[in-house]
Amino acid sequence: MSLTELVFLVLAVVAAGSALLSMTSGQLVHSALWLVVTLGAVAGCFVLMTAEFVAWVQVLVYVGSVVVLVIFALMLTRQTSATTAEVTGNRWIAAALGVVAAIGLGATMVAGFRGEDIEGRRIGTAGSIGQALFTDWVLPFEILSGVLLAALIGAIVISRSGSDR
């Protein structure tokens, strides 16, 4: 077992564990912060899988923006009466479905890719990613910009219509 594998396993355990904590934590803020840990660990996994650029984008976008946004939303919508439980009644069904989905996917993966190895021949540097992004993937990239614009306008409209009332 190489050092990379060891680090990856540690990061994987951290990611899965913090994800579980995030989804089961009774306190909303803790959930968001555990998610930060998960995302960071996943970013670490990305680095180990030769995807440095993606990793830092993950940190920058997820940790820097998404999580801050989520925490902001949590703070804005903090409910004064915390009488209701944080999980719904069908939590056991949900848990069963989650386990089934995880095991099913895992089993599929095991069945399909047992024995395969990642060799890390091509590092995902800014240059190579940029090359791919702006040559072969430029059309999806442009479409994505349209999607982002639509989402931006949509978010503004939803927020405005709420505040006008």
Binding site: C45, V110, R114, E116, D117
Partner: peptide
Amino acid sequence: MPLLYPLLLSSALFGIGLYGVLARRNAV
């Protein structure tokens, strides 16, 4: 590094995320 490691981690994360979507009461 075996390909299975990230794939299994991905499966686990997906299952956990599914549970969260289905079970958490708070929309956020």
